[in-house]
Amino acid sequence: MRPNSRFAQVQPFDIDKVASAAGADPDVLRLENLDTDVPPPPVAVAATRRSLEEGTGNSWLPFTGLPVLCEAIAAELRARTGIDYDPLRQICVTSGGTSAVMPVLLATTEPGEPVVLTDPTYAGLLQRVRLSGARPHLVPLRVEGGLWRLDREALGQVPAAAALLLMSPSMPSGVVLDREDWEAVARVCERTGAYLIYDAAMERIVFDGHPRISPCQVDGLAERTIIIGSMSKEYRMIGWRIGWVAGPADIMSRIMVATIYNTTVASGYHQYGAAAALTDPAGAGVAEAAAEYQARHDTVLAQLDGLPVVRAGGGWSVLVDAEAMGLTAADLSARLLERGRIAATPMTAWGEDVAPRYVRLVYSAEPVERLSDLRARFTAALG
């Protein structure tokens, strides 16, 4: 093949390799992938089925999202941020949240410009920065008091940036950024002229009473923030592949062009299902699902008490420090599968200095009952 510089630094996912090695053995704990057994909202299923039966979603148009969904997203964002987004000019529907990342990067960065992310971060964010031609600048997360915390000192030393690409709670660590973190982000954005690209896919899946703080509520960030949302995590609608982007009207005009020329349009059938979930008076089960994920998270930590597992502030996963146990992350992942019948992914492609020493344990698809022998499985793996 001819060389292609876009792929020079891109690292492959290991999730599919671990999943393939695990096969279909029902005894294996599936802690490698962000699927979930918590069902999607019944109203979303009913609306999607109705759209299929009636054929209402069988269209190429409108390219940037059905009005009913864009209006539902605008109402959702108004409740979360206090900001009124114009459904036509400031919201664009995408084929899942991660599919929104590349159009946003193409609209906000030039080749070679730095984009700030945390280490660890979601590999789908980090590798897309590289594919876009921008350059990742990784700011470490530190373990303090048993929790992940943003290294604000390192963040404050960022010399230049086109954008900061951040999640809260973040995959894979579950770090939840507090107001002081977002204020530090605002200072960097002000100093460098950067956009904040905020992946809000898990914003309401928080534990232990952590306050949910939208960066749009912090002085200086609302006019710089581009929000990426998704139906996959909070609403458990992974297969729908519906996400969105919302932000200032001027930059959204470019993002819409990039989105249209990338995927043309998200599934119309699924957009009706997403709109039904977002407007469900009962809340689409988001709070109940978050409580279930916390119960699973707490079970994992109780089972692995005494091992180097870092408590998450929210999300669907925790990280275990393989190097603290005298192993590489790849070795621990292999042992967990071969000896403990646990499928878990090494964080090789999820950072630079911090992430590669960790293995991720995802609890979104395994109920508390299945997690109750996690310690015994770890003991078998490490023995």
Rank of each mutant, 00 (worst) to 15 (best):
R2K: 13
R2T: 14
D14F: 07
I15T: 11
R30G: 06
P42H: 12
A44V: 01
V45M: 10
R50N: 14
S51V: 01
F63K: 14
T64G: 07
L66V: 09
R78H: 15
L88M: 10
V93E: 00
L105V: 02
T108W: 01
V115P: 00
P140N: 07
L141S: 09
R142I: 08
L150P: 07
E153G: 11
A154R: 13
G156M: 04
Q157A: 15
A163W: 02
L165W: 07
S170W: 00
S173F: 08
E180V: 12
R191D: 00
T192Y: 08
A201W: 09
M202N: 12
E203H: 12
I205C: 06
P211H: 11
D219N: 08
L221I: 04
A222P: 00
I227Y: 03
K233F: 15
M237N: 07
G239E: 14
R241F: 13
W244T: 04
V245W: 06
V245K: 03
A246H: 06
A249P: 00
D250E: 15
D250R: 13
M252S: 01
M252V: 06
I255N: 04
T279I: 06
G285A: 09
G285F: 08
G285T: 08
A290P: 01
A291I: 08
E292D: 15
E292M: 12
R296I: 06
A302R: 14
R311L: 04
G314I: 07
W316I: 13
S317E: 07
L319G: 03
A322W: 11
A322V: 02
A329T: 04
A334Q: 10
R335N: 05
L337Y: 11
A344I: 09
W350G: 08
V354S: 03
P356L: 01
V368E: 14
E369K: 09
R370P: 03
L371W: 10
R377E: 10
R377S: 05
A380F: 09
A381T: 00
G383M: 11
